[in-house]
């Protein structure tokens, strides 16, 4: 997660109740009708903002689907599609560097997200029961890391020192827990129906049972959002790969993308394909970009409706 999310969630809103949109489709009687000019400016601004986000994506997707002739005619990037061909994708995904990198990224994301979510839920649940073992000191320890950290070098020395260099665990373990996510979960768990938890306890349910059968099902939305954040984090990772994975064969997709587009060099095993012009190299670059974009675009709609809830509710109490 990037730094900017932290403030977003900590910003206080009085209570969950008020977060609901007021959903006023009609203009209240006391509000004056907006002027034509004002409405026009608003519309143009909103359209412009949306185009600024979607336009580049459109160009990238269309170019990745174009053949060499269209790309040459357009002088590079294609805005209006003429022919649609999936050649770049079939070439890239029929084995070789990009196929492997995509699988590596998918696997890392799946395993990493599972581990991170599991550990965070357990940690948050433990910390949400006041009076649990070393509850205060552990919470303090977690909080300190949000305000102070010693920086890149000690982390690097630690990870290499325990021998994770060159192993995929170096992509997962150092970032397995985000304190921020734990705090969001904890605040949410604290709020879930105490009377349900109490009655379950009277009926003889243990902590595991309470967590799995009561608290977790009630917190599905927030757990979904937290998992999405973890998944996006793992999918986007390249820096840890650069630090710890020296073998290009092990690189995830983001590193291939960086090499291919930002550095404009063909990664190992791809140079031949590009130099022999089996497929237009611009379309290949765009196709790799689209591959990096697809999982996000696929997951996004499912979780999007929970954002506000997951980000804001309870996070205040930290």
């Amino acid at each position: 997660m990037t730094v900017t999310e932290r403030p977003a969630a900590r910003a206080a809103t009085p209570s969950g109740e008020l977060l609901r949109r007021r959903g006023r489709e009609k203009r209240p009687v006391w509000e004056e009708e907006p002027g034509k000019v004002g409405q026009g400016i608003k519309g143009i601004t909103l359209t412009g903002v949306c185009l600024a986000i979607l336009g580049p994506l459109w160009v990238v997707v269309v170019t990745s689907l174009s053949d060499q002739k269209t790309i040459t005619e357009a002088g590079g990037l294609v805005i209006v599609p003429k022919t649609i061909t999936f050649r770049a994708y079939t070439e890239l995904l029929s084995g070789g560097t990009v196929t492997r990198a995509t699988l590596v990224s998918l696997a890392l994301t799946a395993v990493g997200t599972a581990i991170s979510t599991a550990v965070s839920v357990l940690c948050a649940y433990g910390l949400s029961r006041s009076g649990s073992f070393l509850h205060r000191p552990i919470l303090m320890l977690l909080l300190v890391t949000m305000f102070f950290n010693a920086g890149l070098i000690p982390t690097y020395l630690l990870v290499t020192g325990v021998g994770l260099e060159g192993s995929y665990w170096s992509m997962i373990l150092p970032s397995a827990i985000s304190v921020f996510n734990v705090l969001v979960l904890r605040a949410f768990f604290q709020d879930t129906a105490p009377e349900l938890v109490d009655s379950a306890r009277i009926d003889g349910a243990g902590e595991w049972r309470i967590l799995f059968q009561i608290v977790m099902p009630l917190s599905r939305a927030v757990i979904a959002v937290v998992s999405l954040f973890y998944a996006v984090g793992y999918w986007s990772q390249w820096f840890n790969a650069m630090l710890y994975l020296n073998d290009q064969q092990m690189w995830p997709l983001q590193m291939i993308l960086r090499q291919l587009v930002i550095k404009q060099q063909a990664p190992q095993g791809m140079s031949q394909m590009i130099s022999t012009q089996q497929i237009p190299s611009l379309a290949v670059q765009m196709a790799v970009m689209v591959l990096a974009l697809i999982p996000v675009a696929v997951l996004y709609p499912f979780v999007q409706k929970h954002f506000t809830k997951g980000m804001l509710i309870g996070a205040v109490k930290g």
Binding site: I53, L77, S236, Q237, A292
Partner: peptide
């Protein structure tokens, strides 16, 4: 509006470059 937040920096910079 929220969508680009979930793109990796590598992707955002390649998009700007293009």
């Amino acid at each position: 509006l929220y969508l680009p937040h979930f793109f990796s920096w590598v992707l955002v910079i390649t998009i700007f470059q293009q």
